[in-house]
Nucleic acid binder design. Structure first.
Lengths: 235, 235
DNA sequence: ACAAATGTGAACGCCATGTGAACGACGGCG
DNA sequence: CGCCGTCGTTCACATGGCGTTCACATTTGT
């Protein structure tokens, strides 16, 4: 665990895992980024600078599950970590599917040092210049990912944590059908072990809070799972 | 200049230069993206679809100056082209500096096809969720495998699970004849033990839902089984 | 014309889902 | 320290959709 002395305008970058891979360390140091390695979510909060993390570089080729779990945790914080850059091997490209929300950019490993540097620079440029209110919008539904608030047809929804996460995931992939097992692994977490009926109950409560008029935003596809919204082509 | 035949939910993607590199063409086609190659800004406006470009993939390793000029032009338009993906060689990484505003993401060339596909998917997801869906198409019939929805001549079909699975399997092998036993093992499952007449009933209900006009999409081959669509050697 | 194969209508019965309620973990508060 | 409210999870029960089956009608091939 160490930090580059080169003065950087940004806050230190979170690096996973701990200890960080040698080539990653070298590139970060040469590029003048301050960084700190952490091993898990606990370390991420424990070693967080007072002014928050400046970003994150998560290396997923040694411990994929831990890496994705950390990404999920970083995004769920009160102050989400700004740019999350994923470092994966070519064989893991398939794992990115349905995890679009977990990262801002990725880089294949082994990487060209200057490529990683260019990606970091670009991501920091984007997050510094463009202040984009992170919203998920689908017709009458609006989710504000920063404030954890939800609006249905302008009316505020009072959602619990899990309800919000489930609705967020579904609304981010409108029209697509998910099995209960998929929802459990993507929303609850990879290592979740529990009954699939839990999903049903959360769907029921979401429908109730959406109100009679919008309850059908979440449709059940019998013997498959659930789907949010209409398909893009249905008319 | 050409376009992928796979129907995509998104608008066609602008590709530079014209003609487009062979490996890029192959990846775009395999990934199911519709695209059009243009040689300059003039071509970009001239060949623009009515609903605008769905994005852009700009290859900069042959004509860097023309590529960056096009990027700048695309961003200056009244309706800026949504995700701009830059394709550059490793030696050109330095050129990216001070051009952060010209692109949304980049990919090193020569590229891993699946990396380019993943980047395109991620960028399209960020810009509004328009991703190309897995489709099974046969003339008037379209099956969306992600949403579990079916269209016949533009009209939505309300199918049950087994009906959908059976139709999907048949439509995936148009023209081929399957015995009831084969269908039972491939659609219902290997260990299935039940009457073969079950297939008949499902075929009947499918025909009914397809409507009088399209009922003959599923043809019965006497004393053999069923076939979807026209036979390959029939006139 | 006869038998085999397939279409047709209806009924049965299981299982996936909806529904209500309770349990237990966790955190705040007096 | 103990009470209480919240929230995620789980269980038991109800129900209705849907897959399956059967009996009978119709068609097809020889």
């Amino acid at each position: 665990m160490s930090a580059a002395d080169t003065a950087a305008a940004t806050e230190p970058v979170l690096v996973f895992p701990d200890p960080a891979p040698a080539d990653l360390v070298q590139t970060l140091d040469l590029s003048g980024f301050a960084w700190k390695a952490v091993g898990d979510e606990l370390g991420a909060t424990r070693h967080e600078p007072d002014s928050g993390w400046g970003g994150a570089v998560v290396c997923a080729d040694t411990d994929p599950e831990g890496a994705f779990a950390l990404c999920r945790a970083l995004r769920r914080r009160d102050a989400p970590v700004a740019p999350v850059l994923l470092l994966i091997s070519g064989a893991q490209l398939g794992e990115l599917e349905l995890r679009e929300d977990l990262y801002d950019d990725f880089c294949l490993s082994p990487f060209h040092p200057r490529e990683l540097e260019a990606r970091l620079r670009h991501q920091f440029w984007r997050s510094g210049g463009g202040v984009q209110a992170e919203l998920v919008e689908y017709e009458p539904l609006v989710l504000n990912l920063e404030t954890y608030q939800a609006l249905i047809a302008g009316r505020p929804l009072d959602l619990t944590y899990m309800e919000y996460e489930l609705l967020k995931f579904l609304a981010q992939h409108p029209g697509k059908v998910f099995t209960r097992e998929t929802l459990l692994s993507r929303v609850w977490g990879y290592e979740y072990y529990g009954g699939a009926r839990t999903v049903d109950v959360h769907v029921r409560r979401l429908r109730a809070k959406l109100g009679e008029e919008y309850a059908n935003l979440i449709q059940t596809v019998r013997s498959v799972g659930y789907r949010f919204g209409q398909s893009r082509w249905a008319g």
